[in-house]
Lab assay of single mutants.
Amino acid sequence: HFTSQQLQELEATFQRNRYPDMSTREEIAVWTNLTEARVRVWFKNRRAKWR
């Protein structure tokens, strides 16, 4: 589960860029205190939901 702060950060990034690269995902991981893998999976799932 994600905190509302984490989701806000993830959503804001998603609005700007639906396909963040590795370095962007790592930055998000640092800001949100999540692993890069969790961030990558979140984006994958979010893109699926967005379609």
Score class of each variant (00 low, 15 high):
42 W>V: 00
23 S>P: 10
44 K>M: 11
43 F>V: 01
26 E>D: 06
12 A>K: 13
31 W>F: 14
23 S>M: 11
30 V>H: 12
44 K>E: 14
34 L>S: 13
51 R>V: 08
5 Q>P: 06
26 E>M: 14
17 N>D: 07
18 R>T: 05
7 L>P: 00
38 R>I: 15
6 Q>W: 05
36 E>T: 05
9 E>Q: 15
47 R>K: 03
1 H>I: 11
22 M>S: 08
31 W>E: 12
47 R>D: 02
42 W>S: 00
27 E>H: 09
40 R>H: 07
29 A>R: 01
2 F>Y: 12
32 T>H: 07
43 F>T: 00
50 W>G: 08
30 V>N: 12
37 A>K: 12
1 H>G: 12
46 R>C: 03
36 E>Q: 05
15 Q>S: 09
43 F>H: 00
49 K>A: 12
7 L>K: 06
42 W>L: 02
39 V>Y: 02
33 N>M: 07
1 H>E: 12
33 N>C: 07
8 Q>N: 10
47 R>V: 06
4 S>N: 11
16 R>D: 06
3 T>M: 03
15 Q>N: 08
19 Y>F: 10
25 R>D: 02
43 F>P: 00
46 R>T: 04
13 T>V: 15
42 W>H: 01
38 R>G: 08
7 L>I: 10
50 W>N: 07
44 K>A: 10
27 E>I: 11
24 T>K: 09
45 N>S: 09
40 R>T: 06
21 D>R: 06
22 M>N: 06
44 K>S: 09
45 N>W: 15
34 L>F: 01
9 E>Y: 15
18 R>S: 06
33 N>K: 09
50 W>Q: 10
6 Q>L: 05
33 N>Q: 10
11 E>I: 05
49 K>L: 12
41 V>Y: 12
2 F>S: 02
26 E>C: 14
43 F>A: 00
50 W>V: 08
7 L>A: 06
38 R>E: 15
14 F>K: 03
44 K>Q: 13
46 R>F: 02
8 Q>C: 14
38 R>K: 12
48 A>Q: 10
50 W>C: 11
48 A>G: 06
50 W>P: 06
34 L>R: 01
33 N>I: 04
29 A>M: 03
11 E>G: 00
38 R>M: 15
27 E>S: 10
3 T>V: 03
7 L>W: 11
13 T>C: 15
5 Q>R: 11
2 F>T: 02
47 R>E: 03
9 E>A: 15
41 V>M: 14
1 H>N: 11
3 T>E: 04
1 H>Q: 12
46 R>N: 02
37 A>F: 13
32 T>V: 11
39 V>E: 00
20 P>M: 02
48 A>L: 09
12 A>R: 13
27 E>V: 10
49 K>S: 09
16 R>C: 14
12 A>F: 11
12 A>S: 10
14 F>Y: 06
24 T>L: 11
38 R>C: 15
49 K>R: 12
29 A>W: 04
39 V>A: 02
9 E>V: 15
36 E>L: 05
11 E>M: 04
17 N>A: 05
48 A>F: 07
4 S>M: 12
15 Q>T: 08
10 L>I: 02
19 Y>M: 05
3 T>H: 04
43 F>Y: 07
25 R>E: 02
17 N>C: 14
48 A>T: 08
10 L>H: 03
25 R>F: 07
4 S>Y: 13
41 V>F: 12
20 P>S: 03
49 K>N: 08
7 L>F: 05
7 L>M: 08
27 E>L: 14
40 R>W: 05
19 Y>V: 05
2 F>G: 02
8 Q>K: 13
42 W>R: 00
48 A>V: 09
